[in-house]
Computed example of a mutant assay.
Amino acid sequence: MQLSPDDMTPVLNRLKRAQGQLGGVIRLIESGAECQDVVTQLAATSRALDRAGFAILSSGLQQCLAEEGSVSEENAKTLEKLFLTLS
C-alpha cells in the first residue's frame, strides 16, 4: 500500500508544525524554562505527531477501499498493526 503524495500534503504540514514545536521544547529546556511550560509544549508536540500518524493510517485505509472495493486481509492486518503501534 503506497500513499498518494497529494493526500500527504496536510500530514506534511502537521509534521512541520510538530517539528517547530519540538524545536520550541528544546529551546525551553536550554533556557531553563518552567517544568509546566516544557511539559505542555511537549504534550502538544506528541499530539501533533499522533494526529499525523492517524491521518496517514486513515489515508491508507481510504486508498485500500477505493482501489480494491474492500480491504484485503493482508492490508487489514497491516493497518491494524500500524494503528496499534500508535496507541
Rank of each mutant, 00 (worst) to 15 (best):
V39S: 07
L12T: 13
E67A: 14
T9M: 14
E68L: 05
S87P: 10
T45I: 13
V25S: 00
T85V: 08
E67Y: 09
L86G: 01
V71W: 00
A43L: 11
Q63G: 12
P10Y: 02
V25Y: 00
V71H: 02
L42E: 03
E74M: 05
T78H: 14
P5V: 00
C35I: 08
L79M: 06
L28V: 03
L22Y: 08
D6Y: 02
Q19I: 12
E74H: 13
L84G: 01
P10L: 06
I26P: 10
L22K: 06
D7V: 04
T45M: 08
S72C: 07
L84Y: 05
R27W: 15
D6N: 05
E30T: 15
T40P: 09
N13H: 14
I29E: 11
S70Q: 07
S58K: 06
R14E: 04
V39W: 02
L82H: 12
F54G: 01
C35D: 12
S59D: 05
T85L: 10
A48P: 00
L49V: 05
G69Y: 00
T9L: 06
K81I: 01
E34K: 13
F83C: 09
A33D: 07
S59R: 13
N13T: 12
A52K: 00
L79Y: 07
Q41N: 06
C64H: 15
A43P: 14
G69I: 00
L86Y: 05
A66H: 09
L22G: 09
L65K: 02
